[in-house]
Every structure is written in structure tokens, then in C-alpha cells.
Amino acid sequence: MVSARTFSLFLVLFATWLLLSGIWDPFLIASGAVSSLLVVYLAHRMSVIDGEGHPIQLSWKLLTYLPWLAWQILISNIAVCRMVLSPSMKLDAGSGWVSASQKTPVGLVTFANSITLTPGTVALAVYPDTIQVHALDRSGIEELKAGEMNRRVCAMEGQS
């Protein structure tokens, strides 16, 4: 009856409680366990414990995606800073459509969030197979159309 996903949600909630409180006294640990159980019960009643509510199917592939994303964020931070600080402010801003080949909503949201998190590109509107993107410099859209980020998110999303 108790699936691995439910159990993992309980563990995550309980660990969060322990780390945030930082007081190791039996009463507080017990109330932490009770509140975590209550939240798991409520989440079960709302039936939100699924691949979207608690996506454990991503776990280990995420570890290879995040460093790459951090590197992209670093590069584009420098590029956007240079544009903001340039005295002439010659911008070539505009919007375009980027195709997204993710199959699950979690994958699509990860892709859209990654686009928005990278300075220089913002997801304006998200549809099941395309994303409208605004870029501070049009080369950002061309780079997304080349599809490396799309491929990496697809490799990470896994089966749900």
C-alpha cells in the first residue's frame, strides 16, 4: 500500500523538519514525525503524490544536468552584464519559438524553468510542443533552437 514515493516524501519532510529546527529533543522530534505524517496523509487525500508532486524519477540524472546548467548560467550572466554595462545599449531583443520535445509535464516545466533561469532568455508562453522565448540578444534564441538544452532535459526526464 505504501509506495516508495510516499515513503520518500515522508523522509524528505521529516529531514526538513529536523534540519530547520536543529533541536534534538524527544518531544520536538515526535511532533515533527506527527506533522510529517499528517502532511503525507493530506497529500495522499489530495492525490498529489505522483510523478509531478514528488518527482523522484529524475533524481540521479539531475546531478549531471545541474552542473551544466550552472555553467550556462555563469556564461550568460557575464554576457548580460556586458550588455547592461555597455554605454551605447545597442540591443537586438526579440522573441521566437523554440520546439520542446519533452514527453512529461515535469520535463517541460524543467525546460521552461531552465530557459527562464538563464539570464538573457525568458520563456513567455509554454505549449505542449513549443515554447515562446524572448531573448535580450537574438543569438540566444538561435542557441536554444540548436537544441542542446532540449536534448539534455529529455535525457534527464526519465520514465514516469
Binding site: 548560467i73 539570464p119 525568458v122
Partner: peptide
């Protein structure tokens, strides 16, 4: 500070979003 400068200097809302995302990430 660069991000705040971007929010002030950039010409319209959509470009200002990029300035704001510097503060959110970097």
C-alpha cells in the same frame, strides 16, 4: 547593483526581465 542598473536602464519590460534575472541567479 548591475542587475538594478539593468532594471533601470533597459528600454522595456521584457528586456528588464533579463536584468532582473541576474539578481535572481548570479
Amino acid at each position: 547593483i548591475i542587475s538594478a542598473l539593468g532594471v533601470i536602464r533597459l528600454p522595456d519590460l521584457f528586456t528588464r526581465l533579463h536584468g532582473a534575472s541576474i539578481a535572481d541567479t548570479g
